[in-house]
């Protein structure tokens, strides 16, 4: 029973991994790519890790997988934030159909 539930979690995670990488290829500019790929790939890999935890239960491997998911949830948003801030400071432009850029306005003033 737990094997089946774990496999379902792993397959969901794989689907979200694939969709995240598809977003990395399809979306038009750096910031949108970062949105899609960071969210979907982090969630997908956490899904794989939770699936491993359900398949193995409270053994060494399951607990380590859960710890790995927690590390990933804590570190992935921070690294995405670092890349986005560095890219904006280095002057990479937004997509030309973007609606507004308040950050650029405030940087120009200060």
């Amino acid at each position: 029973m737990s094997e089946t539930i774990g496999l379902v979690f792993i397959i969901t995670g794989l689907a979200f991994d694939f969709l995240g990488c598809l977003g990395l290829v399809r979306l038009p500019d750096l910031y949108n790519r970062l949105q899609a790929s960071t969210k979907c790939v982090t969630f997908g890999t956490c899904g794989i890790m939770v699936g491993i935890f359900i398949m193995n239960g409270f053994t060494g491997m399951g607990i380590k997988a859960l710890l790995c998911a927690v590390f990933l949830l804590l570190t992935a948003p921070v690294s995405a934030h670092a890349i986005a801030r560095a890219a904006h400071i280095a002057g990479f432009k937004l997509w030309e159909k973007s609606v507004c850029d308040k950050y650029q306005e405030d940087k120009g003033k200060g």
Binding site: D17, L24, L30, S37, T38, T45, I52, C68, I83, F92
Partner: peptide, 26 residues
């Protein structure tokens, strides 16, 4: 097209490799 896109790709590749390791383990 820009260096920042390549950095994003490298970051995401790193997260995918974690998934690889998990699946190998199980």
């Amino acid at each position: 097209p820009t260096p920042a896109d390549r950095v994003v790709g490298i970051d995401i590749l790193g997260i995918l490799i974690i998934g690889f390791c998990g699946i190998f383990a199980v």
